[in-house]
Computed example of a mutant assay.
Amino acid sequence: MDELSVKCLLHANDQVILVPSACGLQEMVNKMNDFVKKKSVKVYVGKTKVMVFERGESTTECDLIIENEKVEQVKEFIYLCSRLQIIANMAEISKKRMNADNKVNGA
């Protein structure tokens, strides 16, 4: 879309939009919403989520609005049976991996 590099993951009626920065995200979502409305499709805002990935602790607020409703910002969500989540640091990642290994070893 114009100068904004956009990548999409599409499956049936699910869509993930990946953008390199939040700049222009609202405009892009507005264009996407206008397009689907022309096809008599409605974006279900209750199932729509926004997640910000950044180095360190994610603190950026992303106020995304669709049809006058604010989209919920989350730190994790499930897409096609895979959990996408923000993990603050490598120590937390290592702890989660050790816990998973211990469960396997104990089984």
Rank of each mutant, 00 (worst) to 15 (best):
M1F: 10
M1D: 12
D2H: 07
E3G: 14
L4V: 14
L4F: 09
V6R: 00
K7S: 12
K7G: 05
C8N: 09
C8E: 11
L9Q: 04
L10C: 10
H11N: 03
N13C: 02
N13Y: 04
N13R: 03
D14R: 02
Q15S: 15
V16A: 04
V16T: 02
I17T: 13
I17R: 02
I17G: 01
S21P: 03
S21Q: 08
A22N: 12
C23R: 14
C23K: 15
C23D: 15
G24C: 04
L25N: 02
L25A: 04
Q26T: 03
E27C: 10
E27D: 14
E27V: 09
M28S: 08
K31S: 10
N33L: 00
N33H: 09
D34N: 09
V36L: 06
K37M: 07
K38T: 09
K38A: 06
K39F: 10
S40N: 13
V41T: 06
K42W: 08
V43T: 06
V43P: 03
Y44P: 05
T48C: 06
K49T: 01
V50A: 05
V50L: 04
M51C: 00
F53R: 00
F53I: 10
E54H: 04
E54P: 02
R55T: 14
R55L: 13
R55A: 15
G56L: 00
T59W: 03
D63T: 08
D63L: 10
I66D: 05
E67D: 15
N68S: 13
N68I: 01
E69S: 11
E69G: 01
V71W: 03
E72S: 09
K75N: 14
K75I: 08
K75A: 07
K75M: 11
K75C: 09
E76F: 07
E76V: 01
E76H: 13
F77T: 06
F77W: 05
I78F: 08
I78N: 14
I78E: 14
Y79T: 09
Y79P: 07
C81V: 11
C81L: 15
C81E: 15
C81H: 14
C81K: 15
S82V: 15
R83S: 10
L84C: 07
Q85K: 11
Q85R: 14
Q85P: 00
I87S: 00
I87N: 00
N89M: 02
N89C: 05
E92A: 13
K96I: 11
K96E: 12
R97M: 15
M98I: 15
M98H: 13
M98Y: 14
N99V: 12
A100K: 13
D101H: 10
D101K: 10
N102Q: 11
K103M: 12
K103R: 09
N105S: 06
A107K: 04
